[in-house]
Write a protein that binds this DNA or RNA. Structure first.
Lengths: 190, 190
DNA sequence: GGAAGAGTAGACCGATCTATATATTTGTCC
DNA sequence: GGACAAATATATAGATCGGTCTACTCTTCC
């Protein structure tokens, strides 16, 4: 069983994940995170001695892996790449709507905030996207695409997904995601 | 000629535009904005009595209109929709690289930060995207697409552009934008 | 040329931020 | 059960946040 310390650490990470996804790196304060995670400051700096950056880094890594796992899971039931992209968009749109547009891409907000100013967090964001792109590319290769073509295509598909999430949250509507869903097939048939 | 007050106001808006695009709403402080805009706090609250929200709103509106004007300008020289999208992506990629990845989409970061929590700013972001999508759709209609088809297509093209900008900044590389450039044509031929 | 308002200037306020310092409690292992 | 580290619990430091306030300087217009 997980020790009490591990549970506290996990609560902090989960609280950080939620708050950072909703409002970004600068918009999410440590006070809120410790409150939401029901942990005192001492525990925060015990588990994350390098402070906010380290906690947010752990939160981003966890969210990144969760989305990668989601894509992989959906990949198992998808007969082809098009069905996979549609399933991913559906799942993310549902998740977004259920959260009242407080959730979208758990990486994007921080990625944009820190792209030019925080090397360590930028790196983690870049790795998450690389990871997702790789999972997509793997499925494309299994579908018969040449590896380098699959990589480029996965990049564009990921861009379409990410952009649809940005527009959907900005407009508080799932329409951009549904439209991207309809367009995804066109990218694959080129 | 612009009065001194108008110049101060413009300097503040420009400073806010730069800082907000680089680090987002929460990451950009009023102290930095007044420093960069060479204006004291008194001037800030004279020109923007409702404070940060009002200044950032003005900055977002200005940036939104600038991008809309950019698309319109590029639209004049583009022989077709595909060439237009490619030109937009090229221009935005150049702009991003020149700024050392401090610039991308001037709306997206704030849009994601405030999507669920700040109605007035969310509205301004949504309007900017609507505006851009409209400009793209107009060009598509001129290219012969049916109006409703043009609207849906413009939405997906904008998603592809926005997503490419997110990935490019996150990875500090223009490759995702170049890949989106290559994929844009496929969306149009479906 | 003097009144009036637009605009500038910066000190200042309470709140909140991240981080640290210092105790104290809890758990574990010999 | 005693020792030692892990983990928790606060209090507080120092900086910065957005915002308010008062005083001052221009400009404009009668």
């Amino acid at each position: 069983m997980a020790t009490k310390g591990e549970q506290t650490r996990a609560r902090l990470i989960n609280a950080a994940r939620t708050l950072v996804e909703e409002r970004g790196y600068f918009g999410a304060g440590l006070n809120e995170m410790t409150d939401a995670g029901k942990a005192p400051r001492g525990s925060l700096y015990h588990h994350f001695p390098r402070g906010k950056d380290q906690l947010v880094a752990a939160a981003l890594a966890a969210s990144g892996q969760e989305i990668a796992a989601l894509i992989r899971t959906l990949s198992e039931d998808a007969p082809n790449a098009r069905a996979l992209v549609e399933a991913v968009l559906d799942a993310l749109a549902d998740r977004m709507e259920e959260a009242g547009y407080a959730k979208g891409c758990p990486i994007a907000t921080v990625a944009l905030e820190v792209a030019a100013t925080n090397d360590s967090l930028q790196k983690i964001c870049a790795e998450a996207y690389d990871d997702w792109q790789g999972v997509l590319a793997d499925h494309l290769v299994a579908d018969g695409y040449a590896p380098d073509r699959a990589g480029a295509l996965a990049c564009s598909l990921l861009a379409l997904i990410e952009g649809a999430l940005v527009l959907a949250r900005a407009q508080r509507s799932r329409i951009p995601i549904d439209r991207a869903r309809e367009s995804a097939g066109a990218l694959l048939n080129a």
